[in-house]
């Protein structure tokens, strides 16, 4: 039933890393700034309180009927357990995006056929801005470069729309640095 599927994205990591907000930014960018369709399902319960955390985002030109991610086209991981759990679900030809200091690809981590992977030192970049908390925004910038699902402009607008008032400049910089890292290291839109 792939015809009505849309693009499936799973963002996963630990609670507190801003996983859900990253998903919200993607969803906002698509549904508000590009006037297309997006859904975000959040993980709740114990998962949302310090342990594993994941956001399931679906982006589409049409109304989304099934809002759960089964085989992501794009998998974003910010923790080793998240990689363990979700790598086997990555779709053939899909993209794996990971925080390279928090997640290590090891032998035996087999990518599905045709899949590509993209690492980013998002924590280090965030620390360079002296605010580790913007790690997720760096990731969003990086995603926008290596797996563009919305225009860079929409993604950036959605970031500024989603962060606390007064932190726009900082978050805008975090987004830009993530984006630039993607363009410089992976040639941007692939």
């Amino acid at each position: 039933m792939s015809g009505h599927r849309g693009t499936e994205v799973r963002i996963a990591g630990f609670g507190g890393q801003g996983v859900i907000l990253s998903g919200m930014i993607l969803g906002r960018a698509v549904s508000i700034f590009e006037n297309k369709h997006a859904t975000l399902m959040q993980s709740f319960g114990p998962e949302a309180r310090g342990g594993a955390c994941s956001a399931q985002v679906i982006l589409s030109d049409e109304k989304i009927l099934y809002p759960y991610v089964k085989a992501p086209d794009v998998l974003v991981v910010m923790s080793q357990p998240a990689l363990r759990t979700y790598l086997p679900t990555l779709r053939e030809g899909g993209k794996l995006i990971y925080e390279q200091d928090l997640v290590k690809l090891e032998e035996g981590d087999e990518l599905p056929e045709g899949a590509t992977c993209y690492g980013v030192p998002a924590t280090k970049i965030a620390e360079g801005l002296r605010r580790r908390i913007v790690l997720n925004i760096v990731m969003v910038g990086f995603i926008s470069a290596v797996a563009p699902m919305v225009s860079m402009e929409s993604a950036r607008k959605a970031v500024l729309h989603s962060v606390p008032r007064g932190t726009e400049a900082l978050n805008g910089r975090a987004f830009d640095m993530g984006y630039r890292y993607g363009v410089e290291n992976y040639g941007g839109e692939s």
Partner: peptide, 9 residues
Amino acid sequence: EAVGHMLEK
């Protein structure tokens, strides 16, 4: 729960 916890436009 699905409608309640789903974000959408």
